[in-house]
């Protein structure tokens, strides 16, 4: 087995992993589909500020409310958002999308700021409703050449991490000062939502 130089070609796959960073351009044209999908999936949720703050607000609100909302809201959100995305892909028209997204940022921010608490099911439905708007806006965003699975994975990871960031900030509520910080964050989010709401309705 050791008779000769073992520079065997078929093992390339493993070497490729190691070398990917080094030999980027050569692979890029082959892998555009997957890489492109993953990159655009990762980026879309963080590209619109109102969308971004609404995601964080979901995490904040969940953390503020404690179990089971702390995990129920972030679990509901991506799934419903994906369904909303389906409507977007299918071309189902949804009125006032930008308005809805901005409104969701405003209302979620206000809920955090006011420490608003309601029946769990009601809150889940409310968050789900917002998620449809958010998903719909992303629904038609898949670049032509990109891999759909990669887009989905990137999109969900990005969204999930935003929720997680919200939850981690939200864990500050254990301390009195932290609780105030969280509420201030909520107020900030509401303000951003308000700005985009006025922009969407043509006032600003």
């Amino acid at each position: 087995m050791h008779d000769s130089l073992r520079t065997t070609p078929y093992w390339r796959s493993l070497a490729a992993i190691v070398l990917t960073l080094g030999s980027l351009p050569a692979w890029a044209h082959v892998e555009q589909g997957v890489a492109g999908g993953l990159v655009s999936g990762l980026l879309h949720p963080v590209m619109g500020p109102d969308h971004l703050v609404a995601m964080v607000a979901v995490g904040l609100w969940g953390a503020q409310l404690g179990a089971p909302a702390i995990w129920l809201l972030p679990v509901v959100f991506p799934v419903v958002m994906a369904l909303g995305g389906l409507f977007g892909v299918a071309g189902v028209p949804l009125p006032f999308i930008e308005f809805g997204i901005a409104l969701s940022a405003l209302l979620l921010g206000l809920a955090v700021a006011a420490r608003f608490r309601a029946n769990l099911v009601v809150m889940a439905v409310l968050v789900g409703l917002f998620a449809i708007f958010h998903g719909h806006a992303h629904g038609t965003e898949l670049p032509q050449s990109a891999n759909a699975m990669a887009f989905g994975v990137g999109f969900v990871i990005s969204t999930g991490l935003l929720h997680l960031a919200g939850i981690l900030i939200g864990l500050l509520v254990r301390w009195p000062v932290g609780s105030a910080v969280v509420r201030a964050c909520g107020a900030g989010i509401a303000a951003i939502g308000l700005y985009y709401l006025s922009a969407a309705s043509g006032l600003a």
Partner: peptide, 21 residues
Amino acid sequence: WQTIAAAYIPLGIEHIMLGVD
């Protein structure tokens, strides 16, 4: 040295991975 590293680290991994013995 980057060129050497790019050639020889994979060669080493390859060698042990294929060296079933």
